[in-house]
Design a protein around this nucleic acid. Structure first.
Lengths: 228, 228
DNA sequence: TCAATAATTCGGTCAGGAACGAACTATGAA
DNA sequence: TTCATAGTTCGTTCCTGACCGAATTATTGA
């Protein structure tokens, strides 16, 4: 069997551990160089070069040349969505392999996961909203309740616009550093955007690290209190 | 590199052509036997058995024993969503390999694609709605317009409920028999359901074939006219 | 009970592709 | 110019895993 559906080729491409590591790194939303990606994947630059060529040819990532560096990033929303849905799937089926979280406490606290908030603060957001019944948790996923919709609207998110997007609105994404959920999907992205707009936090230019401002952290903790 | 993210293993599983063929067959929503799936994948039963074991272990499919047969089907919505998003991705990046459509004219006309309508009639539905500006077609996907929302509401679809689902509302899925789009996603599923409820069409028990009733076909053609 | 069919297990073969290092090109800095 | 670094190409090695056929274990129907 060598000829299958079109998507099989893409899945195989994503399915190689080295390439998947590269894609995971790029899911931070950052553009990374070939060397950094080789590092991330744990292979030699020559090997990485081949993988990057394959991913670029398949248009899963794209490349921008800048001086003697080549910066790679996820090519489009479809690719990000596909990888996200695979992540969700791998979490859902419970066959998780343990994966060591980041050592850096700052990274454990808050980092970006493609375009939404992950780390302790991401978990706090998710659990705070869940405790207030802003989500309905069904067997096959989560959805926004009416009170939840009011809340995010008050928070400053245009819910209608989020719903109109192609992406699923709510996704519960397992946080690999703490083994608990944070909020992904269009809503997760929108909330992070509001937080950026209000200057609650800023993005590190070289990593997926997010740094809260002093004021921002207080406001965030107030908006998403731990319900006991 | 042998240890990667959790989802890499799943992607690799989906990425093998034989297994992808099986999954595609199961995306019809039907439960199929091991032999049928071997046939579908073009491999010997012994080989298929191994693949099915792997897919079952990974909880991508599940198995129900019935006499001396074993019926397999897609295990859950997450799996279907992941495969759908890979399908969308493979279409989007334009690297389509030509794939021969089904020979059977009845299958070309109307068949089920997991839970929505595919084939000529599926394309008709999509294009009829697109021509009336019921979708907004953006670079990264399609979304329902206000008039579109009114239309599907009048048609009998509970749009709010669809939006509350985890699935993307609208997805344009490339039809491999005619190389044109049909409507997937929660909305596509909901519309097909309405059509079933009205007995416009019925499902063949042994294949992914959909048969329109005489009355149903007329009604469908009226509801989704070809706009010129 | 026996024959037929569904499915699985096992052993052996083989190809694809992932990995590496060495040699090469390109860019920028000293 | 010369050196250092980024990235690629190429040839080689090696291992995983897909595949088949034969034998084995169910289950049904005659």
């Amino acid at each position: 069997m060598k000829s299958g559906p079109n998507y099989a080729r893409l899945a195989a491409l994503i399915g190689d551990p080295a390439r998947a590591n590269m894609l995971s790194a790029l899911m931070s939303g950052l553009a990374l160089t070939a060397r950094e990606l080789a590092q991330e994947a744990g292979v030699q630059p020559s090997t990485a070069s081949g993988h990057l060529k394959a991913l670029t040819t398949a248009q899963l990532i794209e490349c921008q040349k800048q001086g003697r560096h080549k910066y790679y990033r996820i090519a489009n929303q479809e690719t990000a969505t596909a990888i996200e849905s695979l992540q969700v799937l791998s979490e859902h089926n419970g066959l998780l392999r343990v994966r060591p979280g980041p050592k850096d406490p700052a990274l454990r606290k808050a980092r970006v996961c493609y375009d939404h908030l992950a780390g302790d603060m991401g978990v706090r957001l998710y659990e705070s909203m869940a405790a207030r019944d802003f989500f309905k948790v069904a067997a096959d996923g989560i959805s926004l309740t009416d009170v939840g919709e009011w809340f995010v609207h008050d928070f400053g998110v245009d819910v209608q616009q989020c719903m109109a997007l192609r992406r699923p609105l709510c996704l519960a994404c397992l946080d690999w550093s703490v083994r608990r959920h944070h909020l992904a999907g269009a809503l997760g992205a929108a909330i992070l955007k509001v937080a950026f707009d209000r200057d609650w936090l800023r993005r590190d230019t070289r990593s997926r690290l997010l740094r809260f401002t002093t004021v921002g952290e207080m406001a965030f903790r107030e908006a998403f209190p731990i319900m006991s």
